[in-house]
Simulated scan of single mutants.
Amino acid sequence: MKKILVLVFLITSIGHSQILDPVKWSTSIKKVSNLEYDLIISAEIEPNYHLYSLKVPKGGPLPTVFIFEDSEDYELVGNMIEDKGHTAFDSIFELNIKYFENSANFKQRIKLKTKKVKVAGEIEFMTCNDASCVPGYDDFEITIQ
């Protein structure tokens, strides 16, 4: 009987548990010239969480990574640029680490090779609060006509 009660508790706990999703992503574009656009990928971060930079020291948390699908319709120009953010000592990793609170913007310039372009990709990231860290994954798609 005790095993059945434990099993019932576990099943109901799993059914009622929340999936943590402390970052919401959105996209926009800014025309720079006839052939160049800035893709802006923005993160809205829940209070008490922070999102890590594109570059973190070895031995630190997972960085934010943008993976663009290969396409003959455009080319990436330069590297992804991120907001200033905050750099602080993290006692868990024992490193100075750059991170973002509340929001962050990431910008990638592209050069069009055709008139209509679909830019798609993936975002891999990690967010943490004082109690835990959550790895995250999301897709993005931006169409330029």
Rank of each mutant, 00 (worst) to 15 (best):
K116P: 06
K2I: 15
G59N: 04
P63A: 14
A131L: 15
K116F: 13
E36H: 11
M80Y: 14
F140A: 02
L10C: 08
A104P: 02
K111D: 02
L51M: 04
D139N: 13
G85M: 03
S17K: 13
I144D: 02
S17V: 13
L10N: 08
D130E: 09
T64L: 00
I11L: 07
K107N: 05
Q145N: 15
I144Y: 01
D38W: 03
L39D: 07
I123H: 03
T87C: 10
P22T: 04
F89G: 09
V23K: 02
E72G: 10
I123R: 01
T114A: 07
D90F: 00
I14T: 12
L76Q: 07
A88V: 10
T12K: 02
N105S: 08
V8K: 11
V65N: 08
V23D: 01
T64A: 03
G121S: 02
G136H: 01
S26A: 12
N34D: 14
D90P: 02
P63I: 09
S103T: 12
I14S: 09
F9S: 11
K107D: 00
T127M: 02
N129M: 01
Y49T: 04
L95G: 00
N79K: 14
I29F: 04
V32E: 15
A120E: 12
Y37M: 05
F140M: 03
E44L: 11
C128G: 02
L39T: 08
I92Q: 06
N79H: 14
I14Q: 08
Y37C: 04
L76F: 03
L51C: 05
E46C: 06
K58T: 13
F106V: 00
H50R: 05
G60C: 06
T143C: 11
I19N: 14
E36K: 14
I81E: 09
G85V: 06
L20E: 00
I19L: 14
D73Q: 13
Y99L: 02
L20Q: 05
I142F: 11
D90R: 00
G78V: 03
T114M: 07
T87L: 10
G60P: 05
L20H: 03
K116Q: 11
K24T: 10
F125V: 10
R109L: 00
V77M: 01
I144P: 01
V65A: 07
V6P: 07
G59I: 04
V23C: 01
R109E: 01
K113E: 08
